[in-house]
């Protein structure tokens, strides 16, 4: 059996396109790498690399003021960088859609990723998000579409947590040594 690349990043890209998403601020992440590349190659989308994730939260508020929809792509460790800026989104009832590549879950080998990974959903819920899990590649488009509708039409904060089981865990060390 040959490994063909997974199709869920393309499914998510198509779902974002159908939602009218144009601005894609992100901090690069291995789990989102294919999706970011697809957005970069899309003439209708603007990928905006950030120095820290909270910049993307603020930026998308500005995008919405100007009539543009966007999505923030980040890794779970970025959630902690955003918490204060989330309160601006909440108090202003701005829509916010974020897709979060999870670390600190399935097969994580870096202990430093565990705290934010374990606390991701709870922190997001405390910050006012509807949190949608994405564990099944076949549900990718549907989950992002549903989250996007709630974000952009109900002016809500919605986070889709893309499971590490779906993304695959990162290998650090040759196994024969340790």
């Amino acid at each position: 059996m040959t490994d063909s690349p997974p199709t869920w990043p393309a499914d998510i890209h198509a779902a974002l396109k159908a939602l009218g998403v144009r601005h894609v601020p992100c901090v690069p992440d291995a789990g989102h790498a294919r999706l970011i590349e697809l957005c970069r190659n899309d003439d209708e989308m603007r990928v905006v690399p950030l120095t820290t994730e909270e910049e993307g939260v603020a930026m998308l508020a500005g995008s919405w003021l100007g009539g543009r929809r966007g999505v923030l792509l980040m890794q779970s460790s970025g959630i902690g960088n955003c918490v204060n800026m989330f309160s601006t989104v909440r108090v202003g009832r701005y829509p916010l859609l974020t897709l979060i590549a999870m670390r600190g879950q399935w097969g994580e080998a870096n202990p430093w990723q565990m705290p934010m990974g374990r606390n991701a959903a709870a922190i997001l819920e405390l910050s006012g998000f509807q949190v949608l899990g994405l564990d099944d590649a076949g549900m990718a488009a549907e989950t992002v579409s549903a989250g996007g509708r709630t974000a952009f039409e109900a002016n809500e904060m919605v986070a889709v947590l893309v499971s590490q089981r779906l993304i695959g865990s990162k290998a650090f060390a040759p196994t024969e040594d340790g």
């Binding site: 905006v48 603020a58 930026m59 500005g62 919405w64």
Partner: peptide
């Protein structure tokens, strides 16, 4: 800390 970024989103939009 977010004012310039709100401006950027608006300017790009």
């Amino acid at each position: 800390g977010g004012t310039a970024m709100i401006g950027l989103g608006l300017a790009l939009a």
